[in-house]
Amino acid sequence: MNALFQKSSKPILALLIVAMVLPIIAPTYYVQFASKAMLMAIVAVSLNLAVGYGGLVSLCHAAFFGLGGYMLGFTSSDSAGASIWLSLPVALFVVAAVAALIGALSLRTRGIYFIMVTLAFGEMLFYFFHDTKIGGGSDGMYIYFKPEIALGDLTLIDLEDARAFYYVALACLVGASLLIRMLVKSPFGHALAAAKGNERRALSLGFPVFWIRLAAFVISATLAGLAGYFSAAQFGFIAPQMLGWHLSATVLVMVVLGGMSSVLGPIFGAIALLGLEEVLKASFEHWKLINGLLIIALVFALPGGLQQMASLLIPKGAAPEPDLQSMPPKEAVPHV
């Protein structure tokens, strides 16, 4: 555990303290927005395990996100909230099982094929919920009560309270980041990065590349499902749109914007992109046009994301993000 709190831990601790204090001083609207952003950040951080460290450009993570939400819908009733002790494990298990199936098929392919196949399977889940009556079809389903975190009759955390919900979302984000950081630094993470750098070499060294990638894909998908579960709880609503591939692509933008070479980079990407969208939405009618142009500009001008910008603006050593400790081995550093 000690390795997790080395070197760059000071700015991160400072951020964590800000995050802890925020709900006490900020109005409820911003607390809710921050909760939403943190849940998206979980998807971005976990997608980066597949994309940044594994080189697996998945375009179906929104489907896992939405599936997690639908599982909350299925385990909730119209009269009372679902018990989180049962509902959450069931949701995560189903997402993991579906991800294992899709991953096992998609990982038979490489490169452009992998992108297309994951996109297609993601849309399969979209159409599954859109066309069948299982989840209310294209109208989606309402979740009238948030899941209950209780022991017997004693409510431990009341998720109906926006600030309590915020802390749960924060805890999930911190937990997910720590898990991914641990994985990336473990032999498993090194093997994953090695397979990205040179698959043939990793294979000839005896690494079970397929299984390593499948594990990374499933873990990453399951964490996206966790975020989707709480997102559905936050909005009290789940619809097929949440599984659509446009969301997957948006999360990819967050990952690249935040920087793929560190565990925490995508968190900043998620917060920056959602914040930007909020500002653009309020100021322009055709904000999507500007959003699209900014994404194109990102690809050409700032392929390293905000990290690149930070390293340009802030003298070396003082930049909060570039976290060499958690960088994958040199050959696996994404050369975007």
């Binding site: 992108i115 692509a249 055709h286 999507k288 046009l289 699209g292 994404i295 194109i296 690809v299």
Partner: peptide, 18 residues
């Protein structure tokens, strides 16, 4: 790399749609 191509064409979709 393919990731940059994915992002560029996603940006183009948003622009064309709008």
């Amino acid at each position: 790399d393919h990731l940059a191509q994915v992002l560029l064409s996603f940006g183009l979709i948003l622009v064309i749609d709008e």
